[in-house]
Design a protein around this nucleic acid. Structure first.
Lengths: 139, 139
DNA sequence: GTATATGCAAACCGTTTGCATGGCT
DNA sequence: AGCCATGCAAACGGTTTGCATATAC
């Protein structure tokens, strides 16, 4: 992975959301999308990554920045656990596995999943998103 | 609605969960399943119903009792909003409408909804539930 | 009589916010 | 220069818990 190329990607990603490339945002964005892989994080898990990487970002800023990324449409919030918020770097509508024993969120292999016969949105409403969460427990 | 019949239904419902029919539980259970309709509540909304009905139940007991009903398999928790917990008197797997502007949860007309091609559960795991939440916003 | 349920208030925990400082353009 | 981001600590809101009392069996 070319570091310059990575930085370009991350900066472009921030710019797409109209967000200034500050040190903290670059740190967080690099951890999120630096390698182009999809990632699922909580505020705490992302915070742990920053301290592990040696780049200091306050927890409050992690929270605020995740919210800013979300508002900018750069990431998506996924509600699977009342206790904490999960964020997904993939912004399109796709199904998730939620591993209840480890509180982990991953993409489900979506190729074959199809939801048919969705009811029409009630009058005056539109479908904002269809969340599909496959909850997994130990067999 | 015959009051005696209703009380029998509610008592039987509690017994099915192995729960003693205390005054508070009868009050809450009657509000939940007294008329046989499906219902979607939060702790706060159910608490509001009790005070409206004149039967005093403390908020903590509403929380604890909802959790007890849930553990007993009498109701289901549905996670749609990080801020509060919703409970559904229908315990089978079925899709929901979540009305984002009013923070309301309802059953979606499920007759035609079909999810096909669900991936197999990963090794050592089994599918506990498949949550389908159709998020609605004002058109 | 014994185990369990209830109520209150305090603890809890993830998240947000007010405010002063610092950085980007 | 001006606006916006950051960090800290304090506030917040929904939920849970410790403990004393009351109730079901």
């Amino acid at each position: 992975m070319d570091a310059v190329q990575q930085q370009d990607r991350v900066t472009a990603w921030l710019a797409r959301g109209g967000l200034r490339p500050t040190r903290q945002r670059l740190t967080l964005a690099t951890l999120l999308v630096g390698d182009g892989e999809n990632r699922h994080v909580t505020a705490e898990s992302l915070y742990a990554l920053t301290t592990g990487a040696g780049d200091r970002v306050s927890l409050a800023t992690v929270y605020n920045t995740l919210r800013a990324f979300c508002t900018a449409g750069l990431i998506n919030e996924v509600v699977v656990d009342g206790a904490r918020s999960y964020f997904d770097t993939r912004v399109d509508d796709h199904p998730h596995f939620y591993w209840e024993d480890s509180h982990t969120l991953t993409d489900a292999p979506a190729d074959e999943v199809r939801i048919t016969g969705l009811p029409d949105a009630p009058a005056g409403m539109q479908v904002a998103r269809v969340d599909v969460v496959i909850r997994l427990k130990r067999a």
